[in-house]
Amino acid sequence: MIDKIVRTMAEAMAGIKDGSTVLIGGFGAVGQPDALIEGLIEQGAKDLVCVANNAGTGHTGLARLMELGRVRKIICSFPRSAGSVVFEELYRQGKIELEIVPQGTLAERMRAAGAGVPAFYTPTGVGTLLAQGKEVREIDGRQYVLERALKGDVALIEAWEADRWGNLTYRASGRNFNPVMAMAADLTIAQAMHIRELGEIDPNHVVTPGIFVKRVIHVDRGPDWA
């Protein structure tokens, strides 16, 4: 019997190695797998490259992971937001590398990785600092920048519902980067608000088919999120 549902956070985090590239879902706090990030902090892997839209806020979650010196590099589109104090301090001190990527390019680089496309041309960023050092090619009279696929060793994502095959649904704007990251990593781990019986999720409503998901853990955020 296939059963991707794990009961403990230690099982969920098992085998994540130092030096891993970790894709972390969410847009700000929405759809951000907070419990899994706490699990990664507990698990201990270091020298990580983290890919997330934002660079964490306050002193918890991703910000805490960075504060503990476990993140070598962050790849994101919008690191500077209200409360991103840990990132800004580490960046100022030269203690963390930053690769800034336009938001749509970030999403497409991961989608490409998941789809087996090694690189693609995009109009985004042509003529800007973010295209420096990249191949530019004219196609049908317009300039495009070559961007490479971005693959993760691990993806940490948040879903609304999950079953034991790893089929997932999402909630409203909590979907964001989660389905894209789910397909772009070797080891995709999902926290889900609700665990359903196999067959209980309408197949027409599955957003991430279980083929992209290795482990699922039940994390109830509580009544405010229900």
């Binding site: 589109s77 690191p79 960046y91 100022r92 930053l98 800034i100 336009p102 749509g104 390019t105 960023g125």
Partner: peptide, 13 residues
């Protein structure tokens, strides 16, 4: 100090 581009370049292009 910490540039942040978000979706601006994608939208503009």
């Amino acid at each position: 100090t910490a540039p942040a581009v978000g979706g601006a370049m994608d939208l503009a292009a």
